[in-house]
Design a protein around this nucleic acid. Structure first.
Length: 90
DNA sequence: GTTGAGCGTT
């Protein structure tokens, strides 16, 4: 299951996210999103967990909690196709 | 500070 983690503090790293989520189960990958132009964090990221039950437990437990001074948002990630795709032509 | 890439043609 892909999990979206938003409203993150800029101090949070992918390792911090992994530690928080793998406490509830197996974490296959963590991906913190950074702005390519500024090189700084966008304030959100994604966590992938192979076990859906563990993923739900992690979501329920971590959503709305305080992480490094910011209340984070955790829920199932939307498909990437949600944002405008640059490969499309008219 | 809130839903992801890169650089090219699916």
């Amino acid at each position: 299951m892909n999990i979206y983690v938003g409203n993150l503090s800029y101090s949070v790293t992918d390792n911090d996210l992994r530690k928080a989520f793998q406490d509830f189960g197996e974490v296959s990958s963590v991906n913190l999103i950074s702005d390519k132009l500024t090189g700084r964090s966008k304030g959100f990221g994604f966590v992938e967990m192979p076990n859906a039950s563990e993923a739900e437990a992690a979501m329920k437990s971590l959503n709305g909690t305080d992480l490094m001074g910011r209340t984070i948002t955790v829920n199932e990630a939307r498909p990437k196709g949600d944002a405008p795709q640059r490969s499309s032509r008219y």
